[in-house]
């Protein structure tokens, strides 16, 4: 079973499966809720007790009220839509480009050898280095954010796909070749299932990175979206509103992480890393 060792690499930062908790199955979620409640209580208490100036950190109830009135405005929902739309479009483009390039480059040894150094060089270039360029070219239009998002998440996907394609068991590939599988069926039945765990890992990493860059572009360049709303709220001194929007962005991040993990579990339900009975 070579597949067992293959999953250790891409799942490095996946939480290990927990053993059965000692005090019933509700203990851990309840403790987690308690933890959140403590944080909320501390945020509520600090400004009320005067430990922290309420102008910098308003009590949680004030933030919640600001969030409530924010949810009632059309601007908020437009901004939310713009952020999520830009994120999804950039992520989709990066996934497609990363998959196509990764599978082609990964399956041809010559291309792989020739491009390795270039990939290693281009990947660590921080995408924010491109900010001045996209500002000159697109100003604060959504294209600016799109370029940054695609550039940053493309490498995440590409590198994982390359790992995945390289991980194909040579015996399996040679067997497929002996049986005269066509190139396409080798990709479909041998390369794809091996690479899939890596692809999904790439998707999960790229989804998080794409959100970071989308928000960054909105905040720094002024591309319309929640990030810009945060910048506007902060510079106009609407402190509670700033915190409320930061909370919203954090919740989006939680939702992105959770749904990426759900996708992972669903796509890989046949895989040894996800199946429970192994």
């Amino acid at each position: 079973m070579t597949t067992v060792s293959t999953v250790t690499e891409p799942t490095l930062d996946r939480p290990a499966r927990t053993r059965a908790p000692a005090g019933g199955r509700w203990r851990e979620p309840l403790l987690g809720l308690l933890g959140l409640a403590i944080v909320v209580a501390v945020v509520e208490a600090l400004p009320r007790l005067g430990v922290v100036n309420g102008r910098f950190l308003p009590p949680f109830s004030t933030m919640a009220r600001a969030l409530g009135s924010e949810l009632a405005t059309a601007n908020f929902w437009t901004a939310l839509g713009q952020t999520l739309g830009g994120w999804a479009a950039g992520l989709a483009l990066a996934m497609i480009a990363g998959l196509v390039v990764g599978v082609i480059v990964g399956s041809v040894p010559f291309l792989r050898a020739v491009t390795a150094s270039t990939v290693e060089f281009l990947r660590p270039i921080p995408s924010v280095a491109l900010i001045p360029l996209v500002v000159l070219m697109y100003g604060s239009r959504p294209q600016s954010a799109l370029v940054l998002v695609v550039y940053a998440s493309f490498w995440q996907v590409l590198v994982q796909v390359l790992y995945g394609v390289a991980d194909v068991d040579p015996v399996v590939r040679d067997t497929a070749r002996s049986y005269r599988f066509s190139r396409w069926s080798i990709v479909r039945t041998v390369v794809w299932p091996t690479a899939l765990p890596y692809v999904v890992t790439g998707f999960r990493l790229a989804a998080a990175v794409a959100l970071i860059l989308e928000i960054t572009a909105e905040l720094i360049i002024g591309v319309p979206g929640l990030g810009r709303s945060i910048g506007v709220a902060q510079s106009s001194g609407a402190v509670a509103q700033t915190y409320a929007l930061v909370i919203v962005v954090g919740l989006i991040g939680v939702a992105v992480n959770a749904s990426a993990r759900a996708v992972e579990r669903r796509v890989l339900r046949w895989h040894t890393s996800v199946r429970r009975d192994l």
Binding site: R55, F56, L57, A208, L211, I212, I215, T216, L219, I220, G227, I230, G231, A233, Q234, S235, V239, T242, Y243, V246, V249, G250, L251, I252, G253, V254, V256, N257
Partner: peptide, 15 residues
Amino acid sequence: RAVPPPVLIPVIALF
């Protein structure tokens, strides 16, 4: 963890 780190900047700027 899920809060995109650049969002910290306006918050820290408040303080």
